[in-house]
Amino acid sequence: MSEIRVPGVLQGFKAFLMRGNVVDLAVAVVIGAAFTGIVNSVVKGVISPVVGALGTKSLDGYSSCLKGPCTGTGADATGVRILWGSVLGATLNFVITAAVVYFLMVLPMSKFLARQEARRKAKHGTRDVSEVTELEVLEEIRDALLAQRSPNRTDA
């Protein structure tokens, strides 16, 4: 009886780690963690003072009372309070993070890659291939199949 060899757990784990998308994901997580400090500084140094000039010093202070008299804070609080300021703060953090990632990483990298591609095309003298729709490809296949049929052959 032949024995089927299953790769070891460590070999499978190594293959998993060596996939390109796993490495890209790890880099994204590390860069995202690094941007957290920048975003928190922007929120603390820019956004919070602007909000403080318009209202309270912190977005966390904004809330609405849903039920009953809302008095006190923390464990001594009564009533049902919706802390919509916290949600707004988290949303601003997300938008600022997305903007920083886009404007400082994605946009410059896209422009760089486009320039590299243009240089490569100019160097090799290649030209863009016109896009062909799926329907056009299917029509070409149909026409080729019809041309291959012999005229004296009948379908049964």
Rank of each mutant, 00 (worst) to 15 (best):
V29I: 15
R127Y: 12
V87A: 12
T133H: 05
T56I: 08
I47D: 04
V100R: 00
V80H: 05
T97V: 05
P108K: 01
I38F: 11
V101L: 10
I31C: 08
V27Y: 08
S86F: 04
L113D: 02
G68A: 04
A53T: 03
Y102E: 11
L92S: 05
E140H: 06
G61H: 06
T36Q: 09
L145A: 08
V100T: 02
I38V: 14
L146H: 00
Y62G: 09
I141R: 02
N40I: 06
V137H: 08
G61R: 07
A33D: 08
I96A: 11
E131G: 13
L138D: 11
G68F: 04
Y62N: 05
C70K: 03
L25E: 15
S48D: 11
I38R: 01
R127F: 15
N93V: 04
I96C: 10
R127K: 15
A77E: 15
V80R: 05
I31A: 13
A77N: 10
E140D: 11
A114T: 10
T73M: 10
A53C: 01
G61T: 09
G79V: 02
T36K: 07
K123H: 13
A118L: 11
A147E: 05
I38S: 05
G32R: 02
F103G: 05
A77D: 09
S130C: 09
F94P: 01
K57N: 12
I141P: 00
V27I: 15
A147M: 03
V132L: 13
T78G: 06
A26W: 12
V27Q: 08
T71H: 02
G72S: 01
V46N: 02
V101I: 13
K44C: 05
V132A: 13
G125N: 15
V43I: 13
T133N: 11
A26I: 14
S48I: 10
